[in-house]
Each structure stands twice: as C-alpha cells, then as structure tokens.
Amino acid sequence: MTESKRVIVSPKSAPVENNWWVHMILVTVFMIAVIPVLWVVMTAFMTKTQTQVMPPEIFFKPSFNAFGVIVRQFGMLTFMAHSIIIAVASTFFSVTIGTFCAYALARFSFPGKEDVSFWILTNRMMPAVAVILPIFMIFQTFGLLDTFVGIIFLYTAMQLPFVVWMLKGYFEDIPREFEEVALVDGDTWLGAFRKVVLPLMRPSITAASIFVLILSWNEYAFALFLTGTNTRTLPPSVVTFTVSTEVSFDLLGAAAVIIAGPILLFVVFVQKQFVRGLSMGMVR
C-alpha cells in the first residue's frame, strides 16, 4: 500500500509546520506527562534526606545507594527475571490463542456468534479483588500457587478478552477475497491463513502483543496473592520494599527505574510499529 502525504493530512487541515499553538499545547502535555516521571527517576539518585528537600535541587551529586539496596538487599533483579518470564510467556500464549479466536469471530457467521463474543468480554468485568479468593482456591487445588505455570495461565486468561476484541476488528477489515484467492490456488486453509492473513495482520498482532505485555508486566493484585518467593513479580515487590509505614522515596525512585525502565525502552523501540499496527486494520 502506498501512502501519499495527502492521505495523512485531511484537506481541511492544511499542513502547517510553524503553527506555534500546536507546539505549545504539545509541549505542555509532554511536560505534564514526563516531568513527574523524570522527577521520580531523579530521586533514585538522591539520598533519603535529599528526596525531601524543597525547593528541589536540580543539580546534585548522584548516589547509587538506593539501587544498591534494592538490588543487593532486596534482590530486585530476581523479581525482574520472574516478571520477564511471566510477561513474555503470557503474552505469547494469549496472543497466539486469541488470534485464532478473533479470526473465527471475524470470519465466520454461526449461530450465537454475538453471544460468544460478548461473553468473552464479560470475563474482563469481574473486579480482580472479587475473583482472588476463588482463583486462589483453584490454584490451591491444582498446586499452582507460586508456580510459573499458574500465574502464566491466569494472565493468559486475563488478557484473552482484550486480545480477541482488539484483533477481531482488524480481521474484519481484511477483505475475505485475499484468502479465497489463495484457496483457489490450492492451498489448505492453514496455508492461506499463514501466507495471506498473518502477514497482513502482523502489525496489528504486534501492537496487541505490546499492549498485553505492558498489562501483564504491570499487574499487581493477582501477583500479590498468587505468587511467592519463587515467582514474585516486580509490582508487588516494589510495594513491599518501598512502602512500609512510611514510603522511602529514594528506594521508590530506584524501583520505578527498574520496573518501568525496561518497558519504556521497549516502547521507544517499537513505538512506530505500535501505532502502525493499531491503525493498520482500520484501513478499509
């Protein structure tokens, strides 16, 4: 598909490079979004006393003490390894499994389709706090408490409705003729799916994966109750080690860097694909 400059800009909004008010709005929004995070990142390099000094010191001698504490004393890197395993695996499974389901819902018409589709969505509606007890009991029965299998399975289930609902729309937008041509050429359904549909869907699937990865990486409530020392992920660890009766903001800063850093870097690299994938399917 070729994109001309005119496609991006609607005719009425003429391309204005030097529109100062647009930049003013964007700079403001940018600062509101970034400064809080930047400030907390800075506190990671402060001593505990410095984190409380107002007016803020912008220039100070960085200390790596907080990182030392959370890495050496609290073993945050182990939790990070757990987080990586759990987030990546649950993303892989939920996207793989959900893709087929989304395809089926988009491509075929069968009785009860709308109901199934809505029922899938309802699985996202129970508040986490409400299902912790029954899920805990299931895990206990099957010996899944504090195991990777258990929490990965749960996150997969948790993300499926999102994956299905998101990808469904994109599948619907791929003309069905594309596949039929391949089928005419003698391919099996799977062959046609792999050769024709998947390449077209790749950007959207990537975008869905990124979303799911972020959500799994950030999940707190289930992780707190269902993981233990063998599988504990970062979010409950951050709360455990930075919030006691008081919050240690230097430790919080360091923990925030460790928990959000990798995923932020990741987003920097995949930003383009992310947005492209999201907009992809909507091309009619």
Binding site: F30, P36, V239, L252, I259
Partner: peptide, 30 residues
C-alpha cells in the same frame, strides 16, 4: 492535533505515551 504534520512528532508521542506504560501501583506512589 497529530493529524497535522508536526516537527518532532514521534518525540511528542513517546512522551505522551509514558504514563500509560508505568504500573498503576507505581503511578499511585509517584
């Protein structure tokens, strides 16, 4: 706004996306 051609679009976009990437518990603490 992003439908316009803007210099530095992807930098703006990245900055704007940051809050949503951070875990809600950490957002609360921040």
């Amino acid at each position: 706004l992003f439908k316009r051609t803007i210099v530095g679009k992807s930098v703006y976009r990245l900055g704007i996306l940051i809050p949503m990437v951070i875990p809600p518990v950490v957002v609360g603490l921040i």
